[in-house]
């Protein structure tokens, strides 16, 4: 009996170690120093499907820049994130406007991504305590199923349940929960590529669980990671350039 208990504790220790390890390896794949990409966003709302394309740059968790190229209506719309501030530039206004705190929660260009979903680039390991819920499969791929509970107060989602590919260490599915335990969003990663030694998601779907018949698909192309991005990209002058 004693032996079994010791064994259980040992296994438990191994598992708990590996849970942190799993998270660390996921963070190593997806939390990048910098990224440059082209993206297509397919927004489906109540049966209507719209497509938007943009390109962007990200640096750390504080700086991001995006510029829309299609459709014509959104062409030239630019978004800049610097720290907690998000600025949006509309060609028709010719001046950048700051998006106030509460608007960060609102959807970006009519999609199921909020501005902060897009800009978030923080290490899961720093934000959450992980608990292993066992092995599960997503699309026939074996996954670790982890429950991530926030360990710091300042976090967007208090609870996440993630399915992490056992071999590739990428979250194939993520459920995002409100503090009350209500499921808000679901992110499915459809494709990922090995870019510079990292497994980086290139096709994902965001499903808003609080609204029926809406989802947004995000497809990334020409992704380049950990490159040097000139400082001027993340300036207001660049945002407002003619």
């Amino acid at each position: 009996m004693k032996k079994v208990t010791i064994l259980l504790i040992l296994v438990g220790m191994l598992v708990s170690q590996s849970v942190e390890d799993i998270l660390k390896r996921v963070d190593n794949n997806t939390v990048v120093t910098t990224a440059q990409y082209k993206a297509t966003m397919i927004i489906s709302l109540a049966g209507k499907v719209r497509e938007k394309t943009f390109f962007g740059y990200t640096e750390g968790k504080d700086r991001a820049y995006m510029e829309f190229t299609a459709p014509a209506r959104d062409h030239g719309t630019r978004i800049l994130k610097r720290g907690d501030e998000i600025w949006i530039y509309l060609p028709s206004v010719e001046k950048a406007t700051k998006i106030a705190g509460h608007m960060l929660r609102q959807s970006m260009m009519g999609s199921d991504f909020s501005y902060e979903d897009v800009a978030e680039n923080r290490k899961l390991e720093e934000l959450y305590d992980a608990e292993n819920l066992g092995i599960d499969t997503i699309d026939n791929r074996p996954c670790y199923k982890l429950r991530l509970t926030a360990k710091v107060a300042e976090v967007t989602y208090a609870l996440r349940v993630v399915w992490i590919d056992i071999d590739e260490y990428i979250a194939l599915k993520t459920e995002l929960y409100a503090k009350s335990g209500k499921l808000m969003k679901e992110v499915m990663v459809g494709e990922f590529q090995n870019i510079g030694g990292r497994n980086y998601p290139t096709r994902m779907e965001m499903i808003n669980k609080l609204r029926q018949n809406t989802y947004t698909e995000l497809i990334l192309d020409d992704v380049r990671l950990d490159i040097t991005i000139p400082d001027r990209i993340f300036t207001k002058a660049h945002l407002e350039r003619q």
Binding site: R105, A150, V155, T156, A158, L176, A178, K179, S180, K182
Partner: peptide, 8 residues
């Protein structure tokens, strides 16, 4: 603290 919450 900026964490989402939702109630029915």
């Amino acid at each position: 603290y900026g964490t989402y919450n939702a109630n029915d």
